[in-house]
């Protein structure tokens, strides 16, 4: 439309649609076919196989990595199980050792207790004997003291102490 206004300059400017100027068509079609042939050659021979190879390699690598990861995970699970097993075994061993130790200590304790009991009973018997002696001694001393005291008391009260009578009375009292 603008070209119509500037009709004088039509030699330089497009007349109508340059697309419809069929004299240029052979040129465009020829060079287009050359272009397409070159692009096809380059893509088909170089670019597309290369990209396909890269993509295949990448998916292969990813698949390999996933497999490796799966394997490692498997190993980790196994290691964990082994660890748990070892732990359980160690725990069982420890429990066994504790039980043995306890049994031994128990045994020793029982033995020691028995010995102690024997010693205690021996000591107790001794003590009993001594206590008996002391008690006998004490009783004797008491009767002597009582006799003396009674004799003294009788004398102090102005009586005349008959030794035999006092002794009999004190003995009677002491027997109570």
């Amino acid at each position: 439309m603008a070209t119509e206004a500037h009709g004088g300059a039509a030699a330089e400017h497009a007349v109508g649609m340059p697309q419809l100027d069929v004299t240029t068509w052979p040129n465009q079609i020829f060079w287009l076919l050359v272009t397409l042939a070159v692009i096809y050659f380059v893509l088909n021979r170089i670019a597309l196989p290369r990209i396909a190879a890269v993509l295949a390699e990448r998916s292969g690598t990813i698949a390999n990595d996933l497999t490796a990861a799966e394997e490692l995970k498997h190993k980790a699970v196994e290691a964990e199980r082994a660890y748990n097993d070892a732990l359980a075994r160690a725990r069982a061993d420890a429990a066994k050792i504790v039980a043995e130790a306890r049994a031994e200590i128990q045994k020793e304790l029982v033995a020691a207790t028995a010995q102690a009991d024997v010693e205690i009973s021996a000591k107790a018997a001794q003590s009993e004997a001594r206590i008996g002696e002391i008690r006998a001694g004490a009783l004797e001393a008491v009767s002597t003291v009582a006799l003396d005291t009674a004799a003294e008391l009788v004398a102090a009260l102005g009586g005349k102490a008959d030794a035999t009578a006092v002794s009999a009375a004190v003995s009677a009292r002491l027997k109570g």
Partner: peptide, 22 residues
């Protein structure tokens, strides 16, 4: 000076105004 269709003109790059297929 609006020549919207000028950009579509096919012209030889190295002189001459005759456009052969080559």
């Amino acid at each position: 000076a609006i020549h919207p269709m000028d950009q579509f003109v096919v012209k030889p790059l190295f002189g001459g105004d005759h456009v052969e297929f080559y």
